[in-house]
Write a protein that binds this DNA or RNA. Structure first.
Lengths: 143, 143
DNA sequence: TTGCTTGCAAATGATTTGCACTGCT
DNA sequence: AGCAGTGCAAATCATTTGCAAGCAA
């Protein structure tokens, strides 16, 4: 049981939830993925959990703040571990095959961006919680 | 008939499509909206076009390069005029009410960002086409 | 007339939910 | 025993599509 598991367990307990085998399998699958994964990919990574269980347990994990659900371009939903577990990052999104990969922007850029966005948001009376940045293009395989 | 209509007409013709009243109504609705709008909002903005016509015509307009389809946070799809028609911009996204508003980032920031992202993309063997930046938070009304 | 467009209703596909059952505690 | 978690199948919701009728070139 790794450090990550400890944190996950703590958050589930805080939400009055158990850390069941199915949930462990989901967290393990998300951890080894290099980016947000779809339900189908999760089914491949785990031993064929039924879809409904995947959806239901991902909802529980999301409510506990362990998992984040995002949506790619068109397609369906994708899931990843929460940013405070794996660090702030962004995504490379392949227009050809729909793959999504994690990518980290240099802190200097990130900082400048945050400052600029904060000003912009304020100008619109907007309370900024966070930003989302995707790099859209074509991945190495689809070139 | 405005300048925008001329461009739209030209692109539709280039796609072997007509600029019908329904399509004009859609373009007009998208033009007066201050950001990407949902199908429901479009239904409110136009004189109750049937959903299927809205979807079908938006597809035609998207194929002609006039309209871009994006997807908000969870919810459903949203549509806006193509960036080359209304200019490069980003979105303010309200977590509370789901509203999406256009926002423009200062060119200086935009330029630095582009350079940094281009380097990052190259490092992953990725061909960068464009980027997408959303400011997520709470809008003035939902504060 | 010929073919694109329309509008309804039915089909699709991702996601959610009802319900009976299993397995912890 | 009591309650949360499971898995199937049915329901839901946005979106797409088939098809018959309308309209424009």
């Amino acid at each position: 049981m790794s450090e990550l598991d400890d944190v996950v367990l703590a958050r589930l307990v805080a939400s009055d939830q158990r850390y069941t085998p199915a949930r462990r399998a989901l967290v393990a699958a998300l951890r080894c993925a290099g980016g947000p994964v779809s339900i189908q990919e999760i089914q491949g990574l785990t031993d064929d959990l039924p879809q409904s269980s995947i959806y239901r347990n991902l909802s529980v994990l999301e409510a506990a703040g362990v998992v984040t659900r995002i949506v790619g371009n068109y397609e369906f939903g994708r899931f990843e571990l929460a940013e405070d577990l794996i660090g702030h990052h962004h995504h490379l999104l392949c227009e050809e095959c729909g793959a999504m990969l994690d990518v980290t922007v240099p802190p200097a850029i990130e900082r400048q961006l945050d400052e600029a966005l904060e000003k912009l948001a304020k100008r619109s009376g907007f309370t900024l919680h966070h930003h989302r940045l995707d790099l859209v293009g074509r991945c190495a395989q689809c070139k």
